[in-house]
Design a protein around this nucleic acid. Structure first.
Length: 584
RNA sequence: GCGCCCGUGGCUCAGUGGAUAGAGCACUGGCCUCCGGAGCCAGGGGUCGCAGGUUCGAAUCCUGCCGGGCGCGCCA
């Protein structure tokens, strides 16, 4: 109906153009919106207000002219001028009821666009370092990415999801030394475990696994390993100095292949756990891209060589720098350290160049907000290599602060103090956790109170939406039990004239816009807002009007209406990968 | 200091340049002999951080200020 109105308005505009009153018609400038206040009709258009100035006409006068030139539209009851020059449209009841049959015909496809009608998109998300289990801090990105993948798919994009595995660099050495030291403890060595090592219990499990596999084969005297070590402390620098010393010594005691095995078995175990947790959480991935692999295949070397050939690199104080400041970054960045090692930035350039070369129209990265300073340099590198940086969209998600009641829970993978994503799911359930994570704009901070979510989970809005769905299922079941036929085919809906019925039909017709907006703005929270509103209108209707009434025609029409509500709630929940239960 | 993000009822937050700024929680008072009370209805509570500007029209856009978060490594 909205599209029809736009077409009608275009035609009226064109007619006025021919009369020399207005510039040439442009449908893109015609904005028809669903009204919030029923007194403003069903749809409203501000066209006259927008054009009044350039046409040098009074807006109300112009609105009159437009209305007079509107073509015949059987669904339209009336159009009139309101306020400073709005055109308000009121539809006939039959035209409004069309939405019910439309939804039931479309079924699961209601609100979606044909697959492949939009560009290919790659969404990279979570990408947590494989140095520990996923915790609640990763949950928000996981929820956002997986919802977005479904929403973009519904909006017609071809979507693939990717996890970038940071399985290289110093953190891998820290992982290995942490495991080895715990292993030595199992061999009976008294170990002073470094403050800056990974202290979580999961390290003990991995060490035990290695000890079972290798016995005391990798045993060394800790006293010898530690000989000559500086004190562990007193600040972060001191902790790191001690840790680096232990890593160097460990590599003297162990041969390279042992070290590689320590790293790879630990990351394998952790990655397996990450995969399982994400899968349980409803976050699925098509690709798992290893950073190590990019390094081993000389992808980094080749990409940096391209930058060098294009004249964007220079040497300073023994290091290799990329002139990123010439491409809008705040300052130049090191790509190769003076010790010959690539920086993380260098591998990341190679990774992004590789991603863009795979033929996606758009690549979306979901990053924690603490990485925002990093976006500029990655875009600079793409631009330097003649790749349009606009094809890379970086979504920054603010942290979720975790509380238990009033007490804020600090989280650190290092110290092993964190609440895992798995235990969160256990406490509040997958549906509630997912909904909670995406119900706020992703660039807003989110306070996640575990105690509240666990103790009063009934207050969580996800139940409100699910309850509406279950309630409808319950009514339909009841109808069947009573021998009332469920209307599978379109029937007469002219009895749907109650205020609540009109409001529901209107809200139902807004669903495709909600999906589209979530897709365009890359933010599922619009969908959560929509679903809460639809559920609210259904609950209000339920309390005001009985569906199962004696008069058959009325009952049938109401059943069709609530079936359309059920379908729309189900479609929306499905896009969030949240269950739409038949009973609760 | 520089950069990015954010300031909306007591609290947590919606709000697409549009008409009288909305929800939930909390508070007060009501509603099943009735399709599921995990629900509904009503009420109080707001100078949309402050000051300018653009516009027919600003919570929304621009500038400045105030307040908060985050980031500014040859870490990843």
């Amino acid at each position: 109906m909205k599209a029809t109105l736009v077409a009608n308005l275009t035609q009226a505009w064109q007619t006025l153009h021919q009369q020399g009153l207005l510039p040439d018609a442009n449908p893109d400038r015609i904005e028809v919106v669903s009204t919030k206040d029923p007194r403003h009709g069903d749809y409203a258009c501000n066209l006259a207000l927008v054009l009044a100035r350039e046409a040098q006409l009074d807006a109300r006068e112009l609105a009159e002219q437009i209305i007079r030139n509107l073509p015949e539209n059987p669904g339209l009851l009336k159009a009139d001028v309101a306020g400073p020059g709005f055109i308000n449209f009121q539809l006939r009841a039959e035209a409004k009821a069309e939405i019910v049959d439309h939804i039931l015909n479309q079924g699961a496809n209601y609100g979606t666009r044909p697959p492949g009608s939009e560009q290919r998109v790659l969404i990279e998300y979570v990408s947590a370092n494989p140095t520990g289990p996923l915790h609640v801090g990763h949950g928000r990105g996981a929820a956002l990415g997986s919802c977005l993948a479904r929403i973009l798919h519904a909006a017609g994009h071809t979507v693939e999801c990717e996890y970038f595995i940071n399985d290289a660099g110093r953190q891998m050495d820290i992982l290995a030394i942490s495991v080895w030291l715990r292993y030595l403890e199992l061999c009976g060595e008294p170990v002073t475990f470094p403050e800056a090592g990974y202290q979580g219990d999961y390290i003990l499990d991995i060490a035990a696994d290695r000890h079972r596999a290798h016995g005391d084969e990798w045993h060394a005297s800790f006293e010898n390993v530690q000989a000559g070590a500086p004190d562990d402390g007193p600040d972060e620098d001191g902790h790191n100095t001690y840790l680096d010393f232990l890593i160097l010594r460990a590599r003297d005691f162990l041969d390279d292949s042992t070290w590689v095995e320590l790293v790879s078995t630990a990351t394998d175990i952790l990655l397996e756990r990450i995969r399982r947790d994400l899968d349980n959480f409803g976050a699925n991935f098509d690709h798992w891209q290893s950073e190590r692999e990019l390094l081993d295949n000389d992808r980094v070397e080749k990409t940096i060589a391209q930058l060098r050939a294009a004249g964007h690199l220079y040497e300073l104080e023994g290091a290799l720098w990329f002139r990123s400041s010439e491409f809008g970054d705040e300052k130049d960045r090191v790509v190769q350290r003076s010790n010959g090692q690539w920086t993380y930035f260098a591998t990341d350039i190679a990774y992004h160049v590789d991603k863009m070369a795979r033929g996606y129209g758009t690549a979306i990265n979901i990053w924690g907000a603490d990485h925002h300073g990093y976006a500029g340099r990655v875009r600079a590198a793409l631009q330097a290599l003649d790749i349009d940086p606009k094809r890379l969209e970086i979504l920054l998600v603010q942290f979720a602060n975790l509380y238990r009641g009033k007490q804020k829970i600090s989280m650190s993978t290092r110290s092993g103090e964190f609440v895992t994503l798995q235990s969160l799911q256990h406490e509040v359930g997958r549906d509630a956790a997912r909904f909670f994570y995406v119900m706020r704009k992703s660039d807003q901070h989110l306070d996640f109170d575990l105690q509240l979510a666990a103790e009063q989970s009934v207050d969580n809005p996800v139940y409100y939406v699910q309850y509406a769905h279950a309630r409808i299922c319950s009514i339909l079941e009841r109808a069947e039990d009573e021998g009332t036929s469920i209307p599978e085919d379109p029937c007469d809906l002219s009895s749907l004239t109650d205020e609540g019925e009109r409001a529901l039909q209107k809200q139902l017709s807004r669903y495709p816009d909600a999906v589209l907006r979530s897709a365009q703005e890359r933010d599922p929270h619009h969908l959560t807002v929509y679903l809460r509103k639809l559920a609210q209108e259904f609950h209000a209707y339920y309390n005001a009007v009985a569906v199962l009434v004696d008069e058959s025609a009325v009952c049938q029409a109401r059943l069709r209406l609530i079936m359309a509500v059920r379908q729309t709630l189900g479609n929306g929940l499905n896009l969030l990968n949240i269950d739409a239960p038949e009973s609760m």
